[in-house]
């Protein structure tokens, strides 16, 4: 089976879709000759030229606006925000324009744009280059929010996001760029709003997002050695959420742990817990649903402090054990 890194899977998706669809173009800071800060757009400018691989000044509101305006007039822009943190500068265009144009105009316009951005900590980039702000966007009707955790999903979800007629916030993870996995050569899509059961297990449901899916998988291997079978679920699209597989899983296992990197307070975990509690799965719960999330602090620079700010494999292992053993 052919393996690619997460980064190269994204890169291949962009190459293929730009070849197949004239309406698609890329826009962002240093995405041309530089190839993007993390190399995702490498080689595109050589293939497609600077008209379709648009290097911008440092203007995040302008990048978002360029996506909105071109999308509403028939193009399929793929914007890049160099670090997810910088999307704070683009918020007006995303929240007040992209998300609302269709509804505000009576359902008579479409805004088929994708805005890619790497989130997450673990690179020593400190508080302004390491955030996980996905829930800001989850809270805005009209936006779709996608977080791929594997190279296969990265390619398939990016192609699905570009094909979609809605504005999609596409959140990559810096530490995942170098991870490898099976990626078919041909173009394929992974449907949006299609929650995936990544690993089957009978004892507890772990719903994880982005890199936490990978950490949960490693934790599950260790736990299996101790006889605890973990079912791992990756929503992949956070909004609109396909909640049915999660509820079905919790009915089966009777226990649930939510794991995400973003800070716990106001995070996506709260939404997932509520969805489970409001569903028929409530009657099947054998333990309180728990959340393992980032501490409610900015990401620190120091390596050790940074490591202890967000969930790691061993913290997932110990939290699962506590829940399964009835210690919480």
């Amino acid at each position: 089976m052919r393996e690619l890194t997460y980064k190269d899977a994204l890169n291949e998706a962009l190459f293929q879709v730009m070849k197949a669809d004239e309406r698609v173009f890329c826009i962002g800071e240093d995405i041309g000759v530089y190839g993007g800060a993390f190399g995702v757009t490498a080689g595109l400018i050589e293939e497609f030229g600077e008209e379709r691989v648009v290097d911008t000044p440092i203007s995040e509101a302008g990048i978002a606006g360029a996506c909105v305006g071109s999308a509403v007039t028939g193009m399929r822009p793929v914007g890049e925000i160099q670090f997810m943190d910088f999307v704070t500068i683009s918020m007006e265009q995303l929240v007040l324009q992209a998300a609302k144009i269709r509804f505000m105009f009576g359902g008579k316009a479409t805004v088929p744009m994708v805005l890619r951005m790497p989130g997450g900590s673990g690179t020593g980039a400190a508080a302004q280059h390491s955030e996980s702000l996905e829930n800001w966007f989850v809270h805005v009707p009209g936006l779709k929010v996608v977080m791929p955790s594997s190279p296969y999903d990265a390619k398939g979800l990016l192609l699905a996001a570009i094909e979609d007629d809605n504005p999609v916030i596409f959140i990559e993870h810096k530490l995942l760029y170098k991870t490898k996995g099976h990626v078919p050569e041909e173009m394929y899509t992974v449907p949006l709003s299609d929650t995936k059961v990544v690993r089957e297990g009978r004892d507890i449901t772990v719903v994880a997002t982005s890199i936490m899916v990978n950490r949960a998988l490693e934790a599950a291997e260790q736990l299996a050695a101790e006889g605890i079978e973990v079912e791992i679920i990756d929503p992949r699209t956070l909004n609109p959420l396909d909640e049915e597989p999660i509820i079905r899983s919790v009915i089966k296992t009777g226990r649930a742990l939510i794991v995400h990197e973003a800070v716990k307070t106001g995070g996506y975990g709260g939404e997932l817990v509520s969805r489970i509690m409001e569903s028929e799965a409530f009657d099947y719960l054998d333990a309180p649903i728990r959340r393992l999330a980032g501490l409610d602090i900015p990401i620190p620079y120091n390596r050790t402090l940074e490591y202890h700010t967000v969930p790691q494999i061993e913290s997932i292992v110990s939290e699962v054990k506590r829940i399964v053993r009835g210690e919480v």
């Binding site: 826009i27 302008g62 978002a64 606006g65 909105v68 193009m75 265009q93």
Partner: peptide, 8 residues
């Protein structure tokens, strides 16, 4: 900012 996109 939308004008930039329409222009592009």
């Amino acid at each position: 900012p939308i004008s930039v996109g329409v222009g592009l």
